[in-house]
């Protein structure tokens, strides 16, 4: 990770016309950006495209970045919005395809994941989209409630309620799933 000072220096260099300095910022935040996009889109190639697109937008709007805020939070919000717009754009097109392919894809990925992860993924399906996103983003490494709220454009209290409600529902669903699994054994 790069320090705040280093990050500010890089931004100065980029704004001064040194485009190649942006590569360091991209490299530093690529995993976070990609993970956010992946949580929203649930599709690796699409998440990669959305994350790349988000980085391009961030570069184009870098002049408008207010240094009082953290660059990471500002960037994640752009990535979040880009991924959401990808999701909206592709929803209609993807619905029919997803219906056919998703079963196969999730069966394949189920084999790679541990039982616990599979059960959580199944429990997640019972949450509404906003709650699911809230809890998934909250549990991305090192993200605070404030950061996730800023990213999603929500109040901290609203987000806290979402996270609590999602966790409550997940715990209930998980208990149900585990009981069903125990009965099938």
């Amino acid at each position: 990770m790069i320090s705040l000072q280093e990050e500010n220096d890089l931004i100065d260099q980029i704004l001064g016309g040194k485009q190649e300095a942006y590569a360091r910022l991209v490299d530093n935040y690529k995993s976070y950006a990609y993970t956010i996009a992946l949580k929203i889109l649930n599709n690796r190639p699409e998440a990669e495209e959305a994350a790349q697109d988000g980085f391009i937008k961030a570069y184009q709007y870098l002049k408008s970045f207010n240094r009082k805020a953290r660059f990471s939070t500002w960037l994640y919000r752009i990535i979040f919005n880009t991924a959401i717009s990808y999701k909206r754009k592709n929803r209609v097109q993807m619905e029919s395809i997803e219906h056919n392919d998703r079963g196969e894809e999730s069966r394949e990925s189920d084999l790679e994941r541990s039982d616990k992860e599979v059960f959580i993924a199944r429990a997640m399906e019972h949450l509404n989209e906003a709650d699911r996103l809230a809890i998934q983003l909250y549990y991305i490494k090192e993200f605070s409630l404030d950061e996730v709220a800023e990213m999603m454009g929500q109040r901290v209290n609203t987000l806290k309620v979402r996270v609590h409600r999602a966790r409550q529902r997940l715990a209930d669903e998980l208990t149900k799933i585990l009981k069903e699994e125990a009965l099938t054994l």
Partner: peptide, 20 residues
């Protein structure tokens, strides 16, 4: 909490810079 960060493909940075 155990969920880890996902890594994009190895050519991610190069692709962003190329698109830029």
């Amino acid at each position: 909490s155990k969920q880890s960060l996902q890594s994009p493909s190895s050519g991610f940075v190069a692709q962003v810079m190329k698109n830029l």
